[in-house]
């Protein structure tokens, strides 16, 4: 239906305006800084959701693509006076090519085997970040990464960083929403539900899975580059197995196969540790617990609950109107 598309676009417009207006209400607030990272995590969660929520292909190593983006940008711009935005594009390209190449053998695997292979990839990259000390600075990290700038505008405070990140995040969200409502989005969901039937209908599942894996990796790499330039310091700990699990938890909590669910999950998992001290000590246990509870009791994620409430309210209102019409 055309109206459904219009409705989707309206929802996005409201969301985007709210996101762009938020800083005006949070001037000087510490929350603005947290929302910068909510933006980065939303981007990552949307990327992973395209792969897992839509195409149904798991990745337990997505933090590695995030790290590759961060390190490629970080290492080059910390050493050479090259245009960081250009290097960011280069990082995205490199990660895209790598994901495309490893995607073919890896995505032939299914279920547990795919989980294992992506887990292995994540671990290998984590070891590389740690061991290539000359390049990455090893476990003690890489410092001296410059901030991004456009002319005289330097992205070195929360306000500027917020807009920098959220312009990318909103773009990623919009493109992903478009994709999800197209023949490619349908083909991905078809692969998820029945790969044989999708193939019989002419969907080239093999290529499509690799394509969406690549797109997902590129989104993660861009998020990584932004992260490196905002932090100006990066260390392997941010790109390890724990973070891959955190991303997975975000989309399961928020809602598999939902772009706004990805945002919701990113908000929750970025905000909670800021306010709850226990989180920082037991994070992986709490993520595990959340994953189990959500899968058992709310497989559609929190977004499904919100949608149900919205439908309930809409139905109520609809009925109220009908009553008036009758009266």
């Amino acid at each position: 239906m055309v109206t459904e598309k219009k409705r989707q676009f309206l929802i996005f417009l409201i969301f985007a305006l709210a996101a762009l207006a938020a800083p005006f209400f949070l001037k000087g607030n510490y929350l603005l800084n947290v929302l910068v990272f909510v933006g980065i995590n939303t981007m990552l969660a949307v990327g992973l959701n395209l792969l897992l929520g839509y195409a149904g292909q798991i990745s337990l190593g997505h933090a590695a693509f995030f790290g590759m983006g961060a390190y490629i940008s970080g290492i080059i711009t910390a050493r050479y006076p090259l245009e960081p935005f250009l290097i960011m594009a280069l990082a995205a390209l490199c990660v895209g090519v790598i994901a495309f190449v490893i995607g073919f053998p890896i995505l032939k695997l299914k279920g547990h085997y795919l989980a294992m292979a992506t887990l292995g990839f994540g671990i290998i990259m984590y070891i590389i970040f740690n061991e290539t000390v000359d390049w990455t600075g090893g476990p003690s990290g890489l410092s001296g990464i410059p901030n991004l700038k456009i002319g005289a505008l330097v992205f070195d405070n929360d306000w500027n960083n917020y807009y920098l990140v959220w312009i990318f995040t909103l773009a990623v969200m919009l493109l992903s929403i478009n994709l999800s409502q197209s023949r490619i989005g349908r083909a991905l969901r078809a692969i998820h539900d029945s790969e044989v039937a999708a193939r019989v209908m002419g969907v080239n599942a093999r290529i499509l899975k690799v394509q969406i894996f690549t797109v997902s990796a590129v989104i993660s790499a861009v998020a990584g580059s932004l992260y490196a330039h905002i932090m100006t310091f990066i260390a392997p700990a941010s790109f390890g197995f724990n973070f891959s699990v955190e991303l997975l938890t975000m989309i399961v909590i928020g809602g598999l196969g939902s772009i706004y669910g990805s945002f919701l999950g990113a908000v929750i998992l970025t905000m909670l540790p800021e306010f709850l001290r226990v989180f920082q000590d037991f994070d992986i246990i709490i993520y595990g617990l959340m994953l189990i509870l959500m899968t058992m009791f709310m497989p559609g994620g929190l977004i499904s609950g919100i949608e149900a409430i919205a439908r309930f309210i809409a139905a109520k209102f609809g009925r109220a109107k009908d009553d008036h019409a009758e009266a």
């Binding site: 478009n178 994709l179 197209s182 023949r183 490619i184 969901r189 078809a190 209908m201």
Partner: peptide, 30 residues
């Protein structure tokens, strides 16, 4: 073998996959 999570219409629209050819890029950018 249905695409169970999709609507009835969307199922048939996947049937039309070979009758269309927009790639991932033109779909994302509409």
């Amino acid at each position: 073998e249905l695409f169970r999570e999709m609507t009835v219409l969307e199922n048939v629209m996947v049937g039309l996959h070979t009758k269309s050819k927009s790639g991932i890029f033109s779909c994302a950018f509409r």
